[in-house]
Amino acid sequence: MFRKLPDPPRHDRVTVHVDGHAVTVSAGDTAAAAVLASGLPYSRTTTVSGSPRAPYCMMGVCFECLMIVDGDPSRQGCQVIVRDGMRIERQLGGRELLS
């Protein structure tokens, strides 16, 4: 949905995995930005009707970018800064809690 501007010199790049696909982003980017850059059409489906959603506000007030970050579910993706090797999964419907 979004594309990156050309990187400036001396730019730190990190690779994250969005639903298993490697995506290269910049250090300091958010997990939500990584999903938007990944080319995937949506970032979660709702727990109510299953309708697809993507980040809407990018500032932590809409909760549309809830995603699973390194196995930790329902994180606000726009508030999570990427780390190299981070696993980001789209959150589809309500989560199943078993253990």
Binding site: F2, A33, A37
Partner: peptide, 8 residues
Amino acid sequence: KSSRMLPE
């Protein structure tokens, strides 16, 4: 601002 990204 934070990710140097433009919409497609």
